[in-house]
Design a protein around this nucleic acid. Sequence first.
RNA 1: GGCGGGGUAGCCAAGUGGUAAGGCAGGGCUCUGCAAAAGCCUCAUUCACCAGUUCGAUUCUGGUCCCCGCCUCCA
Length: 465
Amino acid sequence: MALKLFNTLSRSVQEFMPLAPPKVGMYCCGLTVYDFAHIGNFRTIVFSDLVRRYLEFKNFQVTHVMNITDVEDKIIKRVRELKIPLREFTGKYEAAFREDLKTLNCLEPHHQPRATEHISEIISLIEKLLARGIAYKAADGSVYFSIEKYQGCGCKYGQLQKLNFEGMRMGERVSADEYEKESVADFALWKSRTPDDGDVFWPSPFGEGRPGWHIECSAMSMKVLGESFDLHLGGEDLKFPHHEDEIAQSEGATGKPFVKFWLHGAHLLVEGKKMSKSLGNFFTLRDLLAKGFTGREVRYALLQAHYRESFNFTMDGLTGARAALARIDECVGKLREISGGKTETADVKLLQQFSDALDDDLNISAAWAVVFEWVREMNKRIAENSLSANDATPALAAWEKIDSVLGIGTKSEAEIPPELLALLEARQAARKAKDFKKSDAIRDELKAKGWTIEDTPKGPKLKKL
RNA sequence: GGCGGGGUAGCCAAGUGGUAAGGCAGGGCUCUGCAAAAGCCUCAUUCACCAGUUCGAUUCUGGUCCCCGCCUCCA
């Protein structure tokens, strides 16, 4: 079966076919590094990671680009308040973000371009737009994109979303620094330097200033992936204006189609409400780790629902994630014990069911159902003692392939300290001697140390709680 | 106001014009000295509400109520 994805451009599910298979160029709108990323950001990031991993599962050769926006109004404001160099400020959050990605087991994008390191590309893109008459320089030195001129070239503005400028509340809150625009819908490509910018400015043929918000993504994506590429993803809020403007800038400059497939991830609610600091339901990954949850639990929780549906992220859901993962861990652990070793021959049927689910516009819920039905089947056969090493090995191989997409891994087996092992043996001895008082005391002692005993037909096992 | 996405068991969440996947929680059982852990089984006569189309609708159409997103920085 072929992979089908919902393309925002066509507003329909289409078979995914890259421009030059098996190569896929994929650009994801990353983070503006002015603070720690929150759980909503991570939903989109984990979604992107899933797309990339699944494309690789389907044997595409993916070039994954994720930008770092490190110059922007909020950043400039904070830098001014803190009186530190821009790079020192953004570097802190960028490093934290990278750490968070690792915690969530997201594959590192092949390229992570920073806006501040692509000023010359941005400038030449703006020059191209000026040369084609689509951009204009305002009296204050800023450069704006003219939607009217763009449309005049036969280009379409409003590809991702039906736009109705009459009905829009466009211009109700035109920011003070943009009053020079010819038309309210126009947007800034280059913002001229103001005293508030401090030392955050670059020289350019249009005067000192800094890039507008949208232009960096056009400049950086085209630099790495070419003027036309396959996939562009981001959160649904970016459809308009950010992505729409990216299309306009890029197609306006090159005259070529910019991106073939646009994918947008829905937002999440937290405890049924829109995330906000005042409601106390605003979480960074660090907040969740501090509550004792692990990165893989958060990743699992974020991968529960279909990417185009808004999803309710809850603490209960996170606790449920822990239980669900334990179920998989148990099963995979038992399969490892039974399995004879590594093999290249994976259980084809299982992989087929799994990929059938994801081929259908990444129906991850259906994919999880396949996984859990498989877990139940394996457990049943293990309990009946009817699963041989010859059965377990290909099943395990299939699971590893599946997990190359899901990326939840397996819980690392904690090393059992020798003194605890001695306690476990002492308990066994006491049990044999029918000294249950003593054996139970040892059990309690182990529990107090954070370990639980699992008495199995094959003998007791120690598990970290 | 314009445009768009939703309302499925206690919670989360798939799905379909032909009678509701999966996960968590709950209940039962197995194992056990007892537990725990683990495993198995079970758990929606019903899909926000009201009409309509249909042999048949949760799925299609119309209306009502509610929630969410974008239109402004935003994942």
